[in-house]
Design a protein around this nucleic acid. Structure first.
Lengths: 103, 103
DNA sequence: TTAATACTAAACCATATAGTTCAGTATTAA
DNA sequence: TTAATACTGAACTATATGGTTTAGTATTAA
């Protein structure tokens, strides 16, 4: 429950989703990760902390460098929660009539 | 992008997820919806507003009653976003090959 | 016509979030 | 040994969020 809160909250920010997307291409140091964003490294560090608290990113310190890598496992719970509602949009006919009813 | 923000934010609260779950069983008036929660109707009304702004709930006024119904469609975008990362937990081998393929 | 119902709006409060800057620590390179 | 790098922590700011209460409106029932 709290895990779902953390996962959805972590993913509700566009910067954090971008961090996740970048980490899908492989491990990155925190500073490399911060480079493309138009905000301080401290700000990115805090975003990584939110992701790390949610278990979506694992940070490992080797020397002075923090290596960040993705752990998508907590997303499973979120996707399972969402999948329950798939029936409410997946049915094309239901979806169409629902759409037409919008007028 | 903003839609994804809205969807994930809307679903990051346990009360709002409970509202969604109840609406999956069918349309409900706002007051009926508010009954089981240990907070004011005003608070529930605000939660419904967040869900409605995210497009997850459609509120229709008939007489003095606001009928709330689920529209799960915006969840599709969220589930699609999450599905991209399924490979990173669903299958260790797939995750590895995906990672290697990125080079 | 009056009273009850089903809300919304506004004002307020406490805490959380997203950002900043500045100072400090740990590690590595020169 | 000194200087640079890669961070974190603390203090601060502005705005958002989740809740409250009070007051008011629209609709229905008596």
């Amino acid at each position: 429950m709290q895990q779902l809160d953390n996962t959805f909250t972590a993913l509700s920010d566009v910067t954090r989703r971008a961090i996740v997307a970048r980490l899908a291409d492989g491990e990155q140091s925190l500073s490399k990760l911060a480079e493309p964003f138009e905000m301080s490294q401290t700000a990115v560090s805090k975003h990584v902390r939110v992701l790390s608290d949610a278990g979506l990113v694992i940070v490992e310190k080797r020397g002075r460098i923090r290596h960040c890598k993705l752990d998508a496992a907590p997303m499973k719970e979120a996707i399972d929660w969402l999948k329950y509602y798939e029936a409410f949009w997946a049915d094309k006919f239901a979806s169409l009539t629902k759409h037409l009813a919008k007028d």
